[in-house]
Design a protein around this nucleic acid. Structure first.
Lengths: 234, 234
DNA sequence: GACAAGCGGAGCCACCGACTCCGTTTGACG
DNA sequence: CGTCAAACGGAGTCGGTGGCTCCGCTTGTC
């Protein structure tokens, strides 16, 4: 992330160097700017999602747009440089969840953590739930996650914690639901999604003697202003 | 809807007629086209939401754009002409739900029906959940609905059907969650949202002895292609 | 001190959607 | 049937947006 060298993206025109490696050494200021750009991109994409403009990111980083394009051939490359890591985090999370002591707790942890990641990083959510960037890489990550989560679900059902008619593919859709709540309420009630995760958990668990404690419900005003805010084109 | 006369929108320049009413009689072809436009708008807005272009609607109606603008001063006016009725339907639904025999069934019916309306009419959903058009009128309708639904919720709680920590403002957010599922899966599994409504209902009801029967779960492929389809910008 | 590497930001280009202009067509009425 | 306002269509305008580039100036490095 904070390397001083970077693989440049311009096709090395005439130079007949056989190796494709171009560990070009950046000038000090260039390297510093590259780091600034990555940091800015992380922040801005996390806050506003992948629809953020490279101009926005450049401004946030305090550099010109051209400087961004000098380091990264295009938007997707920048996204790639940033999120390779993030999607891996989700894979790791699934693994951790699988090895939790209690299968139900593992499942709950997975749902909770992955939603938290999505809410804290709108860019990650865009990546996982809308297929606009890095489709291959994301599909790859999903292929890693699927079998793990499948085992998690199976185990929770086998242990009698999770209702029998639950299926793995319910999980992305539950994520989708929670993400949209989070999307709308993030600014005004950033933890509200936990309330709806709680309801859903109460809806899918087998032990039905009691309710879980829910996060406090939203006031009418909160919901009104959440739905009225116009910054949700997509 | 199929009137032969229509209130024109151009300010009647010099004519000093004291009444603001302008029940201008349209020529036969104009009246026919107006009806075609309304029908087309109903279809197209329902299918693609309010982001549909007036050009799209004109094309669908088989007329030129100018013809649309000759009848309706702008997009919002057309939306208004169409959806006055739709939002009233939601108000009516709330009333019917309030007078259901069983308070829980009334609540379930309300959630079910309002979600069905949203899924069958993307335009209505845009109206209710994003504040881009007709804010006043929609706010008005919501003001009508709120007390009714509040009574519904109170009654369901009083009757011991609905968990005590549920609040009225949960309803719009539940709608939001179901709408986003429906948005993504409408093309490929149009009834899938019912499954998640079922889960949520199991999460919010007080009688926790049994699970409700859920609609069949989605296959991995269904979810994949639902999330991969790029036509969900907004 | 020289010069390639780097820089900024104005500007280009392609696209989009709301809305209008204008030459042509057509229904209504005498 | 003739007349003409009303209506028509669709090419075109306008304003906005976002990805990306051009080019004259600056700066780190050797």
């Amino acid at each position: 992330m904070t390397e001083l060298s970077a693989t440049e993206h311009d096709a090395n025109g005439s130079a007949a160097s056989p190796e494709d490696e171009k560990p070009r050494v950046l000038r000090a200021d260039a390297a510093r700017n590259r780091a600034l750009i990555l940091a800015a991109a992380a922040t801005v994409f996390a806050e506003r999602g992948l629809e953020a403009t490279l101009d926005d990111i450049a401004a946030y980083a305090g550099v010109g747009v051209a400087t961004v394009y000098r380091r990264f051939p295009n938007k997707e490359a920048l996204v790639e440089a940033l999120f390779e890591e993030s999607v891996q985090q989700v894979v790791d999370l699934a693994m951790r969840a699988e090895h939790a002591d209690d299968s139900w707790n593992g499942l709950v942890m997975f749902l909770e953590e992955v939603t938290r990641m999505h809410t804290e990083n709108t860019g990650l959510r865009d990546l996982m739930l809308h297929g606009t960037y890095l489709q291959d890489r994301v599909a790859n990550a999903k292929d890693c996650i699927l079998p793990v989560v499948t085992r998690l679900v199976d185990r929770a059902q086998h242990d009698g914690h999770l209702r029998d008619d639950f299926v793995v593919s319910d999980i992305p859709l539950i994520e989708l639901m929670l993400s949209s709540v989070a999307r709308y309420t993030n600014d005004i009630a950033p933890e509200l999604w936990r309330r709806y995760l709680g309801m859903i958990l109460d809806g899918i668990c087998s032990e039905r003697s009691t309710h879980r404690a829910l996060a406090e419900g939203p006031s009418v005003d909160v919901v009104d202003s959440a739905l009225h805010a116009n910054h949700h084109r997509h």
